[in-house]
Design a protein around this nucleic acid. Structure first.
Length: 357
DNA sequence: AAGTGCCCTGTGGA
DNA sequence: ATCCACAGGGCAC
């Protein structure tokens, strides 16, 4: 398993890396631990509720880096934190490298991890609705859906269109480098995600030079559209958390570069829209195998995308997005190899017939 | 509605 | 060596 930093970002200009202005509120850089001797605290989540390798390298975020055997690091707001697990130890530990205060960092972390949502309850619920989850649980226990910052999530998935993980990561690294530098861990640089204001000072040309291709205009266009929202783009994005799923998706789709798939990713990974189903070719494969076998081989049209999403929701309910994420993770190469040894295909019930309106 | 060509770039296979 | 399909889409006809 190679780390994506193996190829370093090619053309981050010195100017682009430079901080244009200091952050509005100065970050208090507390010495939370002596250099080289980080202090680890237990998190209020056991391995059943959080398994790091099943959560961070699964395509939900491209900002967190693997900084140890079972250790991932990333920034949440002004905080730079690491999470770690040890073999045979059921607890997950965290370490705060910098931030406003240790308590604030812990709260931000728990929020980011969606800690209030009980995976145990979800597994129990899914297993009743789908016997396949009984088998899946053996290997996918602890896989979570994150609750990311909406702007951060939006920009990341703007980069994801018709793209691969290695390049998405490179592009996200570039955007991140525009934010305040928080520290280095295991050779990785970590930055606070740049503000909307900071992002608005990046030109399409600069982004193209950095390798964004046609997605460059998505970024500048979306940033500009967000800035013109009454009350500011951040508040506008946050307000989508209170809307119904279809309204939130519709609002997101007004932004340039955001279509149904990207909107669903943002909704699920940052807007508390737990039943959002990002339908891409992978999910389509899963759906035609287990949920809609009659449609196997059909072309993935927009109409069929919504049928797939409906099928997931009708089978798994309010948290269908989480169910879909678990099935998706099961299909990732590393997990698939593990599962294949004993997993038998299970024929599932077909969802209730939907009449076309 | 649905179909098609196009948009950027890196990669692996033909 | 060169070409080409394709990679976790979106947009404009």
């Amino acid at each position: 398993m190679k780390r994506s930093r193996a190829t370093s970002p090619p053309s981050i200009s010195a100017a682009a890396k430079q901080q244009i202005s200091p952050p509005a509120t100065p970050i208090l850089r507390q010495k939370l631990h002596k250099a080289g001797v980080p202090k680890w605290f237990p998190l209020k989540l056991t391995q059943t509720e959080l398994t790091l390798p099943l959560t961070f390298p699964t395509g939900q975020t491209f900002r967190w880096k693997q900084t140890g055997a079972i250790q991932y690091s990333g920034s949440i707001g002004p905080h730079l934190v690491s999470l770690r697990q040890r073999p045979g130890d059921d607890t997950v530990s965290y370490c705060v490298h910098c931030g406003t205060s240790p308590k604030a960092a812990e709260l931000a972390l728990l929020d980011f991890l969606n800690a209030e949502i009980s995976l145990a309850e979800l597994w129990s619920d899914f297993s009743e609705k789908d016997p396949r989850f009984g088998e899946l649980a053996k290997h996918l226990r602890g896989a979570r859906v994150l609750r990311q910052d909406p702007l951060e999530c939006l920009i990341q998935f703007l980069c994801s269109s018709n793209n691969n993980i290695a390049r998405i990561t490179k592009m996200v690294d570039f955007v991140s480098s525009l934010g305040l530098h928080l520290g280095d861990i295991d050779g990785f640089e970590f930055h606070q995600f740049p503000s909307l204001d900071r992002l608005s000072r990046v030109s399409e040309q600069e982004l193209r030079k950095a390798g964004f291709g046609y997605r460059a205009k998505y970024i500048t266009g979306t940033v500009s559209a967000l800035q013109s929202k009454p009350g500011g783009g951040d508040e506008w994005l946050l307000s989508l958390r209170k809307l119904e799923l279809q309204d939130a998706v519709a609002a997101l789709c007004t932004l340039p570069g955001v279509g149904p798939k990207v909107a669903a990713c943002i909704a699920l990974f940052s807007l508390d829209q737990h039943s959002a189903i990002p339908v891409d070719t992978h999910v389509w494969q899963i759906a035609t195998r287990y949920l809609l076998p009659d449609l196997a081989g059909a072309k993935l049209t927009q109409k069929l995308c919504s049928r797939v999403a409906e099928a997931f929701v009708s089978k798994y309910g309010e948290y269908a997005g989480w169910a879909q994420t678990l099935l998706f993770i099961a299909e990732l190469p590393a997990q698939k190899a593990l599962l294949q040894s004993f997993s038998q295909p299970i024929q599932l019930d077909k969802p209730a017939e939907k009449k076309t309106e």
